[in-house]
Design a binder for these strands. Structure first.
Lengths: 148, 148
DNA sequence: GTTCCATTGTTGCATAGTGCAACATGGAGC
DNA sequence: GCTCCATGTTGCACTATGCAACAATGGAAC
């Protein structure tokens, strides 16, 4: 392996380690704090909010979850009054049941996101505007890469 | 809120969303693939490897886990022959039991890390050396920020 | 329309990972 | 020695998850 390759490997290893650290910290943090929504609830609510009229099966494939898991989670959110079936005149699916977020769900999601974003904001304290933009752009590029 | 603040907020929101996406994808991926170690096992093994002679309690505080959880996880790893108690002449703690990684544990960890790093490597395909280094540096800076 | 099938959703059972609280253990300090 | 505190273990409960079997329902073919 050449000098170039070795250097590249080191950088890649570093990126992995850093992302791993972010991941673990997020998990630990979500255990400590008392969020208005669990990670799963927030993810699902955000997805339904961004995809009004989506069905449980759409959520399952989007998150690589089993249909049964989504079924239960969605019911839990419905019991909390955060999502409802149907009620979305624009996006009626051929089959299955269209889901949408209630006003209360949207409010809860907003508060949940605000809390988590606040933690990110604190971490980015002291970053200049260009540094921030570059970082966000790099993350977007990283995420945009297709899965092999 | 001024133009500057709004722009900054947008960038911060973007960083949060991207990290959230990374997180969710990592969770989904770890469900799909058949890794030699679960996320938890890999984390613990890596920690013990980097901190030979550490005790269960050290792991618990490092990962914000309950002592009981760590106790069970460590026992599971011990049953698999991946970690052992004591056997580390250099780092004997005053109390508790020193943990260290066995040769098999080190091997398993290495393979597990290699698999996960490979996924990251693929995502970084096409990035130039400087782009890579900048990204790694930004992630490090992000992680280095102290928790408030 | 009726029948059949594929998609979608639900439910019973099992598993991993986790917390809390109670308990056990073993060094440290007196 | 005795006491205390840090450490570890165990019983119980709960969440999130998957799999497999089942139920329901819309489309398609006839």
């Amino acid at each position: 392996m050449g000098q170039q390759d070795k250097s590249r490997d080191t950088a890649i290893g570093s990126v992995y380690d850093q992302i791993d650290a972010i991941y673990r910290r997020a998990v630990a943090r979500s255990r400590r704090i008392n969020a208005p929504l669990s990670q799963v609830e927030q993810s699902l609510l955000a997805f339904i909010g961004s995809n009004p009229g989506c069905r449980a099966t759409d959520i399952a494939s989007a998150f690589s979850l089993n249909r049964s898991t989504v079924s239960r989670q969605v019911h839990a959110l419905a019991d909390l009054g955060l999502v409802v079936e149907g009620d979305d005149g624009d996006h009626q699916p051929r089959r299955g049941r269209a889901l949408s977020v209630t006003d209360e769900g949207a409010d809860r999601l907003k508060r949940s996101l605000a809390i988590h974003r606040e933690a990110v904001r604190n971490r980015l304290d002291g970053w200049s505007e260009p540094e921030l933009k570059d970082f966000a752009a790099a993350l977007e590029r990283f995420n945009a890469a297709k899965d092999e």
